[in-house]
Amino acid sequence: MASDVRSDLEVVPLRHPWRWFSGAVILLVIVGLGWAMAEAQIQWEDVPGFFTHPVMLEGLLNTIVLAVAAQGGAIVLGVIIALMRLSANPVARWFAVGYIWLFRGLPVLLQILIWFNLALVFQNISIPMLFSVPTNVVMTAFVAALLGLGLNESAYMAEIVRAGLSSVDPGQTEAAKSIGMTPLTTLRRVVLPQAMRVIIPPTGNNFINMIKGTSMASVIAFLELIHAANNISSRNLEIMETLFAAAAWYLVMVSLASIGQHYLERAYGPR
């Protein structure tokens, strides 16, 4: 009843005892975990040495090169497959659907293993009368990992790009046409810049996944971070210490990628 509310009545704010309680529990868990880590049988003082160990740094460089190359290739292929998926040519459309179905459908680890073992079934890679090279010369661990990671990612990129292109209002294309723009200029100047807003966030997410996914190349003895960690620990048996050093590098890379994504999103953000 409104007439009972007077300005001179004391106001009692709602109390939140459970917030205090749950906050205390969380802090307690964190302190406990920290104490456990400090008490654990880990030679913490050795971790910085492994972090900057020459083998670890070589693994880091290889990880970065593999991740960037695979993601870069996947973006280019993904745009092409997305355009085929949206094309008026039914053969191109069906090819794109089948491509996405295949490369998205198989586990990345399986794809890497298939590429790496390709020499078992094809002794040479050739286009008749143009060139022919022995498969086991071309299909190095790096190339197999690049194909396995990159082709899988390109299928995801194709779907991301398609969603981005479809998100742009058809009226934008019509306006571009009405001032005489060709289809290619329309794509470059009008549609893609607007599609980027939809394309960048999931692409950043996928790149972070890609950085971590390079670890699968360790199974074919490609010298990325985990393989580097294993190489170091096989000599000194400090398995957890070297793995923690590798873990630190992953967190550094992922943090940098997140920062980069933030700035990219701002550059293409809404006006």
Partner: peptide, 13 residues
Amino acid sequence: VGMVFQRFNLFPH
């Protein structure tokens, strides 16, 4: 030929 649309269709970026 110039064209003006009901929904303006200016380039928002």
